[in-house]
Amino acid sequence: MVEYLLGVGILAAVYAINALSLNLQVGVTGLLNFGQVAFVGIGAYSVAILDSHDVPWIVGFLVGAVLAGAAGALVGRLGRTLASDYWAIATLALAELVRLVALNQDGFTGGAQGLSAVSGIWTGMSTTAREAATFATIVVVLGIAYLVARRVRNGQYGRVLVLIRENPDLAASLRHNVVSAKVRVMALSAVMASVCGGFYAMYISFIGPGQLLPFATFLIFTMVVVGGLGNTTGAVVGAVLITVLYDGTRFVRDWIDVSADQAAGIRILVIGVVLLGFLLVRTEGLVPEKVKAAHARR
């Protein structure tokens, strides 16, 4: 039981990092990144590939972060000329390209089989202690990611990002470089997502193209919308709730008599209905974005 709870906790924390990253893009800046899973994949594959060559995991994280950051910056620049909906479609296409490469470059990525036996962290410990230590580590990383996201959101940079989301022309007229702001926020978010991917691959000790399906991005979107678009705390809340829900529905076959195929359908359906329901009934999410109070006079 403890191990199960720790497992869900680890997964929730990993997803929360991802949700913080997506919230910076979608919630704060209004950049509809449908290809978030590509950044996660870059991080995960970097860690897994380097691990299979016995390179220390920290190097894998660094390489993943650099690659993902560069990819994020490029995607952000692509956003320059595009209306937001086509940009969203373009990001989806890019993520599918990444998945196809992962699927077809067998020698490098293990192809459809993916890469398994990725060694985790705290390998020296016994099972339960190791889960606990892993959980603690990832919670610390999540804490750092949360602080970073919060500081960025609440400072001048966050103010500019929100203004870009709401009225980009106004932001540009006030000497804010809209392109650079988007490029930088994409790079930062991509780095966060790659860290999430690295931990994900290490925790389930596997990464394959099946993990890079668009549904993985969709799951994170659900977390961010349920938590409240634009609210940093909301992203974490949403991540925890949706992880519990999505993981819980693994046991759907214990409750009703359906085939494995149908059970998979039910799990996806539940997530889809939750997202659609929130969009229709409570668009602002559980923890809505706040209008900040005025600073006091000195």
């Binding site: 940079y157 929100v162 804010h176 900040k292």
Partner: peptide, 20 residues
């Protein structure tokens, strides 16, 4: 924008080199 307070908007108009 409705999601930004008057003070927030004023600050967004400012030139805060570091915070940006």
């Amino acid at each position: 924008p409705t999601k930004m307070s008057v003070m927030d908007l004023m600050l967004a108009g400012g030139h805060l080199v570091r915070g940006e």
